[in-house]
Nucleic acid binder design. Structure first.
Lengths: 208, 208
DNA sequence: CAGGGTTCGTGATAGCTTCTAACGAAATTT
DNA sequence: AAATTTCGTTAGAAGCTATCACGAACCCTG
């Protein structure tokens, strides 16, 4: 049951976030200004404090949304029957779709800042999906990391073999490796297509 | 030949940068404040504008220093006879030594910002060292990426085989993959040792 | 339907920031 | 010793976050 007040409130919050995303996309999260958003919405400064406790809460909310959006993308790919490569491409598509959204989740952390609890939950959900898809793959030879993971796997379902954990972690870090460099523009001078490197990293993970 | 004025100037610039690094390490680059630095140095605000054109120039200078420091670390490792694994560990050590310095180079880019030309030069030097160390490794089977790189390799010495380029790029992205997630704290909830994952990624790159 | 409480948006204000401008003092050069 | 450059200061504009007090609009209840 939602009252008109709540509907209006939610609508305004949504519009604020919409403007915030635009601003972030064009100038980065550090340049996000409540004042500028308010003016662009036709109301003056402090009005936004009725809807967000402050700049930090707005950014936190955006991070939450970004995380949820990623989890949704990944889950949708898995539900659609995608294998690990399909998952990777879904992830890459999500990242390329809005690089600053990617960086909001995986970019430079602010030393003081502590992510809200539910983001770690969402992160866990992503990991669960990833493990599910990784499980239906041919086994690989045991590695030293598998043994180490055997002792630190409280974050994963006990039924998942450590070798699968290993592969999921490799998968995740390799995606991040290519994407973080690609999106930050560290390949621009070289002229090659980052997608090819992405696929090569993926192929190496999947074949042996 | 340096005049006393120039010496004093350089000394003050150095002290400003020292305070800037402290501030960045404790609160991130976005919280860097010229005003705060000036006050901590016992002089008032605008005095620093005699030494830096503005906040942006100071940060640019810090990025330059960070880049140079990384290049020096990598070169020193290579000169010391390190193999690819040694290079990787040197890189990881450099990153762990000051995470915010790492993020200044490889973290979230600001949409508007354009890195100064010499950083791409330094980046090229790092790549050169990396290619040199990668060259003295047993060959790997040809991959589709090798063919693609054959057509986009103006950034590398013609004598280096494309397969070596491929391996160097894989090396670089895998290091970044583990490090960016580790330094941003995305492994903290899981409890395992990121170094083990780092080594596993490295081993996979070196063995087949 | 009319009152009462809640919620909203405003302007004012404090305190912070970057950065420019004008002035006096200090140091260097002539 | 005089002239010039450089340095550090204070003052100020423009921007930001955030808090406060006030009036107006709205919703719920009697």
């Amino acid at each position: 049951m939602t009252t008109p007040r709540e509907r209006y409130r939610a609508q305004v919050r949504e519009e604020v976030k919409r403007h915030a995303w635009e601003q972030i996309a064009s100038a980065g999260a550090s340049a996000l200004s409540l004042n500028a958003i308010a003016k662009r919405m036709g109301m003056s400064g402090p009005a936004l404090y009725r809807y967000f406790a402050g700049r930090d809460e707005l950014i936190t909310e955006l991070i939450r949304d970004a995380y949820r959006s990623l989890a949704g993308t990944v889950r949708a790919a898995a539900d659609g029957g995608a294998d690990l490569a399909g998952l990777a491409r879904a992830f890459r598509g999500w990242a390329l779709d809005d690089p600053q959204r990617y960086f909001l989740v995986y970019g430079t952390p602010v030393p003081g800042y502590h992510a809200p609890d539910d983001t770690t939950l969402i992160s866990g959900e992503i990991m669960t999906v990833l493990l599910g898809v990784s499980a239906s793959l041919p086994e690989r030879p045991a590695s030293p990391l598998d043994a180490h993971l055997d002792e630190h796997r409280h974050w994963a379902d006990p039924s998942v073999p450590s070798a699968v954990l290993h592969r999921a972690l490799s998968f995740w870090t390799r995606c991040q490796g290519v994407l973080s460099l690609e999106l930050a523009g560290h390949f621009t001078g070289m002229g090659f297509d980052p997608e090819q490197l992405f696929e090569a990293e993926l192929a190496d993970l999947l074949t042996p």
